[in-house]
Design a binder for these strands. Sequence first.
RNA 1: ACCCGGGUGGUGGAACUGGUAGACACGCAGGACUUAAAAUCCUGUGGCCAGUAAUGGCUGUACGGGUUCAACUCCCGUCCCGGGUACCA
Length: 997
Amino acid sequence: MEYKFRDIEEKWQREWKEKKVYNVSNDSPKPKYYVLDMFPYPSGAGLHVGHPLGYIASDIYARYKRLKGFNVLHPMGYDAFGLPAEQYAIEHGIHPAISTAANIDNFRRQLDKIGFCYDWDREVNTSKPEYYRWTQWIFLQLFNSYYNRGKQKAESITQLIKLFEQHGSAAPGIAPSALSFTPQEWKAFDNAKKQTILMDYRLAYCGYGEVNWCEALGTVLANDEVVNGVSERGGHPVVKKKLRQWYLRITEYADRLLEGLERVEFSEAMKEMQSNWIGKSYGAEIDFAIKGFNDKLRVYTTRPDTIFGVDFMVVAPEHELVDKIKSGTQVAAVDEYVTYVKSRSERERMAEKKITGCFTGAYAINPFDGREIPIWISEYVLAGYGTGAIMAVPCGDERDFKFAKHFNIPITNIIGAVYNGEEANATKDAILQNSGFLNGMLMRDAIDVVNNKIEEMSIGKKKVNYKMRDAAFSRQRYWGEPFPIVWKGEAAYALDESELPVELPHMNELKPGEEAEGPLWNLHEWKNYKGGVREVNTMPGYAGSSWYFLRYMDPHNDKEFCSRKASDYWGQVDLYIGGTEHAVGHLLYSRMWTKALYDLGYIGHDEPYKKLVNQGMITGISELAYRFHSHHSLDTETSETIEVKTNLFPYRVQHKDGNISMISMGSKTYSYYFSADCVMEKQKNDMSLIHIPIKFVNNNILNIEELREEWKDEDIVFVTKNGFNCEGKWYNWDQEEMSSEKFVTISQSEKMSKRYQNVVNPDDIIDTYGADTFRMYEMFLGPVEMSKPWDTKGIEGVHRFLKKLWRLFYDEVKGQVWTSSAPSPKERAGGEAATDAEWKALYKGLKKIEEDTERFSFNTGVSTFMILVNELSDLKCHKKEVLEKLLIALAPYAPHIAEELWSLIHSSPGGGDREGTGTILDAAYPTIETKYLIESSKEYPISINGKMRTTINIALDASQPEVEQIVLANEVVQKWLEGKTPKKIIFVKGKMVNVVV
RNA sequence: ACCCGGGUGGUGGAACUGGUAGACACGCAGGACUUAAAAUCCUGUGGCCAGUAAUGGCUGUACGGGUUCAACUCCCGUCCCGGGUACCA
């Protein structure tokens, strides 16, 4: 009987599905454990071998935990709303709902083949009304809440209204209002006015603001969706634009998002990425008088201690004071500069970081020494951060230093020799000089002194700033959740909960609406609702993914997004696995939503994920060849032409060193592809590297026949060092036919993508080797967290391991070889009891496997299985009582083969009575019998002065403490040293003795 | 530029708190079985040197230095690669 993995895997996958063996209940006496994968966006490209890496790791852990006696929630779903489906619809005329459904089917089919233990009855799909109804509902909770800064939590907006009625705008604990009003004034405001004021407090709010507008995509993007000035999806240019937008007031949660990081198990790198994004800084705001004006210039600085080193001020070109203070001859220059800055796109600014700026003609006054300080404008100061103005200290800040040098502004040195005049020194550990009352003080200490002084003088105060901005929450797109909002004039009104869901209406054509509005704008009938106009923008991709982990807990609830009972039972996600790319997007948003829902009392925990593991990316190996087009001109200077008599190739060109450079064409136009071994360094500029589909390449050797068949449209000549292949025949350089040649490609590791023709589909691997091999091989490749290129080379080793495992049970010729020593009423093959050596091998292996699994070291886990199976093979151990323990431990890694063998040894003759379904899932994870692990004697290496010399054998007594062993070792060593007394013996963990003579 | 990771055989990677570096696997070489191939099994495999051999010696974890009886592991400096951030005052 051989290992027929296809039959086995198909059989068990069907069985699991039919019997719903992975369904999990919210009611169990067992302890709970929640294992979650970042759910996928169902793209049209389907899964490639990189996607399942994290899924397999989490599946192994979920299965392991289940065998260990936990009630494990391990669900899967789809993040189905999003831009790509809509772009695809626009380009191909297929409705997003249809393409998304088809993609989901394909994902599901691919996922099922890998044998995951998901409870599919809990599947979520963010684009289904049953789901997004609750996304809209949570949005309403955010809309109807404000952040109470005093209590540091979200509260109902009705609470805020009460505060306004009692205290007016001076109510305690709330953010300062743009408008100050008394309780009486508040009551007198009309509804529209009240709504406008409340909008400044809502956690989901609508406002005008500068947003990242992407013309090509026709929508705004959140900060984390813009990379290097272009859109993350598609790489289209992004410009700043003022638009009416919905936002999430995530900035109110900045401190709690930071604080929460201390309570979760994320990698240090991940925590740092998030805290960098939040970008908390402690500083002060200081007001500078402006010579000849009553206005004050307010700056933000983290280094108030350097105030005596201020040599100029810089104000953002967009700053409101610029127009007012520009003066004299500088007016024209300022206007010109402002126009110039406006003309520059975000991308240009990022690409060429030039030092630019302009003097305004105005001067600020240093409040401590009365010095006049020129005020400049420059684009390096950002309008959106701090106060949009800075005090520049060139001796202590690199940017200020460069600016001063560029514009020849004299530099004041306040740190003596610590500043070398060549570059700025940002130290806090220098002693201040030239600094009035701060002279002789350590900069670090001077910070507080200045802060107190400015507060005393009422010219400033301590201030905390954050880089993070409120998150843009609306998109001018169709394929997203509609807002449950109706506009009446300038006021936004929330729909009632009973009106949810606001279903996304069907549209045939997705053209943008007017005034930068989304496609829904065009649906005039739908738009007009209850005497108002519906919000026609939709929510961004991250809306649905900000709370899906809660929906899995209670997926069919049509009364609530998730019952409190369910969320209290499952609580935090114990283990969350996904890529780093969501560090500052999804992970931050979902943390904020969780905190808001916690504040409002809907759930009992305020951090969604207890432990986060980031899986590395699996890159593909692309195969490339150089191509030279026939219309390309030849570089005659470096080449030497040699006539060759043929109509096919009138001549060829040869470099003086003998390497082939180029062949010209005959009457027909050919594309020339060059084998890697015949392209010289200097020719590379004249050629382009073309991606070759990897299926035509094996070990860097290209199958030219197959490629030619695939690329029929192109007439290709393949050129190698020794000749060329044209029209299917190989010729040498004398135009004589020759035997076939090897065409060598160039390999390069890059992201797996259709575009690079380097995608490896898991389906193909599973067809050839089976899902169990695939699972174990993905783990065997290396640590889950590590990025690595996909390489199929080693997969044979894992496959061999499974076959070897199979042979412990069944032999191709002999049939069943496993035996049982346990008595059974049925007739069956007898056998002897397992020996100590067999038990020892087993438990030693299982102990290591358990440790490896616990610490996510699945690659060494797989290795340990290999060692264990090799040992059992060597021992010719075919005993059921040993092997069945092995199978249980293997079940998380290779569930299909484990199930099959488990079922075979429990149902065949000798298997004994079979209870229940007989599935391995009912088994208990083997406990380690430590008595087999205790060694009675051990070899100790002895070294002298650090150099290994020999080993001694010491009899061990488990009851004796380590000290006894040291004494023993000492005696042995002394004897061995023939009377010489060692100075020192180091004995570590029963492992080694080092002797110093 | 700054902040994180990381650099180990021909290759992927082991070595968990410093304790015989290179587990396990691929590849390669040799052998067994076979008419042959596949499959399977066995042996060898960091480098250098000595020996008929068993074996022994030296060297070796990017580079230079240090701490230690002992360093892939800790400390200092240099180089290289990957990721993140990018004028955030």
